[in-house]
Amino acid sequence: MTALLEVEGLTKSYGGVHAVRDVSFALETGKILALIGPNGAGKSTCFNMLNGQIRPDRGVIRIAGRNTTGLSPRAIWRLGVGRTFQITATFNSMTVRENMQVALLSHHRELFVPRGFAGRFHVGRADALLDLVGMGHQAERACGELAYGDLKRLELAVALANEPKLLLMDEPTAGMAPKERADLMNLTARIARERGLGVLFTEHDMDVVFAHADRIMVLNRGELIAQGVPQQVRNDARVKATYLGGAT
């Protein structure tokens, strides 16, 4: 059986310096995989190659058996990949519901419809997804005035608009309280289970990582130095030395 996401020999360098070198891994449907490592280890580069923002120098990325290496973010999204950003990216002049509606309009390829009030399109579906992430009561608010944690939840709802098979989340809980972090990750895990999604996320908070990830990969200086189930990674001598230190 082919995995949902398969990565082989992914490599990217800038000006002769390897940002990511020969990274290979796989992710099964319904599983949650964490990518951790110090700042500058290549997490973002790795992540952005998966979502199409950066074109790899070498290596192959397959999503549900299809080669997506070098495709644009748009094309990858159309193949059923939802994503959230480290620094939230939302349409700040629009309301929460309108943010959802844009994503749904795009999913149904209705963006070039020149007639009718867009505010009346897909209201039910938008509100259902907002309810799912606990944002239903804020649907009418302008995005620009939302609290940070709420923006993160909105991003999750937006990422679900195209019925994705794979979720890519870049530091999904950065800047949230510990309780909120756990809630968001529990919600993500539930959605992943119920809908059969694979989730790949990067994260700095080790509590979140060890509590919620099925598997963990550790990146250092562009190379994978360890991967495995949480207990394995926690006890890995190299990971302790380069990243975790004595704190955990």
Partner: peptide, 17 residues
């Protein structure tokens, strides 16, 4: 709406197709 989306966040717009 598509125009406003493209105006507000290029990154997010591309990420939702």
């Amino acid at each position: 709406y598509a125009m406003r989306a493209a105006r507000d966040s290029d990154l997010r717009a591309e990420a939702i197709g």
